[in-house]
Nucleic acid binder design. Sequence first.
DNA 1: TTTGAAACAAACCAACG
DNA 2: CGTTGGTTTGTTTCAAA
Lengths: 163, 163
Amino acid sequence: MDAVDQAILRRLQRDGRQTNRDLADAVGIAPSTALERTRALRARGVITGFHAAVDLERLDRGVQALISIRIRPQSREAIESSRDSMAAMPETVGVFVVTGNEDLLVHVAVPSTAYLRDFVLDRLARRKEYVDVRTTVVYDYVQPVEQAELPAAERRDGRTSYR
Amino acid sequence: MDAVDQAILRRLQRDGRQTNRDLADAVGIAPSTALERTRALRARGVITGFHAAVDLERLDRGVQALISIRIRPQSREAIESSRDSMAAMPETVGVFVVTGNEDLLVHVAVPSTAYLRDFVLDRLARRKEYVDVRTTVVYDYVQPVEQAELPAAERRDGRTSYR
DNA sequence: TTTGAAACAAACCAACG
DNA sequence: CGTTGGTTTGTTTCAAA
């Protein structure tokens, strides 16, 4: 992961469909090199894929919420299967498996608060393994497009930071 | 948004780089139509862009956390500027502006728990407008690749659902 | 590894069914 | 909306540096 790889990664996160030529020009390398580097990033698993991003509002899913769920029994099987079943629901945008009082935090996008109510009450709260279901409305959700390696940590007090 | 649009959307979310021909074949339409439909989806803002997805573990950011933050004064300006400043940090994967006791929920990915500690204590907890900062470790985060319109809601009790 | 240049493939466009 | 054919543009390969 040198500076060239990072530049390629940055640009492909921003626009995954720019031509290999444009990418090469922007990064300052030959198209064949850009192709080779991009393939290597994919082969190494740094780039996992290319995806179209959609606007949830335009899919009539302008209401977002975070639903925290406490699962009992708190077994690996119960939590993993809940994670997968929540991830498989068309309403779901993301599922966090978390530490703390709750076990799962499910990010959903639905057409309305009425839909949200039905979703939570009819399809989640009924399940007896979900002993506590709490819903928080999301006013806004923003995501940086670019993800990169982090610069080495530097503590304010001068002590070296662990990595 | 007919069935063809939905099929295109589904396929482009799964693979944003397939050729227009492959897309057309898969959906069962002519390439010219596929191109036209895809462009229309973009023009209508349903598709907002195409992006490379990266594996955070391979960027040495295998530790994820959710940081909930209570902001005072709880003004629009304070919350929006906090949202933007958190979103601008290289550690940040996503920022939720939420209802409830906390105002912000920040999803971060960092190299280690030591890095996480430094990040929270040195860069967040010091800010006096952040009157409460709570960190939850994320064991696992999964995201469905496909997002689509939701089927019409159907209540179990037979009453029509609002949209 | 990187590169340039040739060979190949895809996208694009317009005209027509 | 689909097809066709011609043109442009982009991708891929590969031998040489």
